[in-house]
Amino acid sequence: MKTQRENMINEQLYLVDDDLKNGLYRARRILQDLNSCITREEIQQVCKRLFAKFGNSSVTPPFRCDYGTNIYIGNNSYFNYNNSMVDVAEIFIGDNVLVGPDCGFYTAEHPIDPLSRRMGPEYGRKIIVEDDVWIGGHSVITSGVRIGKGSIIGAGSVVTKDIPENVIAFGNPCRVYRKIDEKDKIYWQDRISSFYEEFPNLREN
């Protein structure tokens, strides 16, 4: 017989039972520790306890989530303050992802019919953010969405559908504005090179 946790992870209808309540309580206790951390080193230690996977990344408190055990974060990613993750389904964050302040990642879904909604069962759909994505502040990423590698989501966007790789997209609902192309690469690599020529001691080995 399947458990409610298995149903939840498999994006099927589920009800919160004692096992899931304990998962919620576990996360709340760890979040108390996380949200009192000061240094990056302290934050990383607590995040390794909270999340299913946490690479060499950083989260600026305060941060909120439901379980943490359904969140996978790669390397060199950064979350600014006041980010929230409703992780009743899995949330996958790749490497080198930048997330501005006050963003929400919401995997939860409820029945459309009000009478069915009152009966309690709900479900979720996973969110995937691929490598090198930048999400501007106050953006909302809704359930079932994939954001493609290298793309930029403008501040204040509400992402309700998949976003392809290497594009700039923004708005409510979020729509693609243009591709990120070779001109962008040349312009920004020239600017970065000039910066490091001015400050050579800051260049990483």
Rank of each mutant, 00 (worst) to 15 (best):
E165V: 10
V167T: 04
V167A: 01
D131R: 08
S157K: 12
C174Y: 05
D184M: 09
Y177A: 13
K126N: 14
P164K: 02
K149P: 07
I180D: 04
S157E: 00
I163H: 11
N166M: 15
I152R: 02
V133F: 07
I127C: 07
I127N: 06
K183G: 12
N172T: 15
T142M: 14
A169E: 08
D162L: 01
P164R: 03
K161S: 10
I163M: 05
E165S: 15
N166L: 10
D184L: 13
K179S: 14
K179C: 07
I152Q: 04
W134E: 09
D132L: 13
G150M: 06
V176Q: 04
G136C: 06
D181G: 09
V176T: 13
W134M: 02
I153T: 05
V145T: 03
K149N: 13
C174P: 01
V140N: 13
I141N: 05
I180G: 10
I153E: 00
G171V: 04
I147S: 08
Y177R: 13
D131E: 07
D181I: 06
I127V: 05
K126A: 15
A155K: 08
R125S: 10
K179A: 15
I180T: 03
G137A: 04
R146L: 11
I147C: 03
V140T: 09
V159Y: 01
G144H: 09
D131L: 10
E182Q: 15
N172V: 13
K161Q: 12
I180F: 03
K149V: 03
E130I: 02
K126T: 13
R125V: 07
D131S: 12
V145M: 05
W134K: 00
E165P: 08
H138F: 14
K149E: 13
G171C: 02
K183S: 14
E130Q: 15
P164T: 00
I127L: 11
K149T: 14
G156S: 08
W134N: 03
H138E: 15
R125C: 06
D181Y: 09
D184T: 01
T142F: 10
R175N: 14
K183W: 12
A155M: 12
I153N: 00
G150W: 01
S157Q: 04
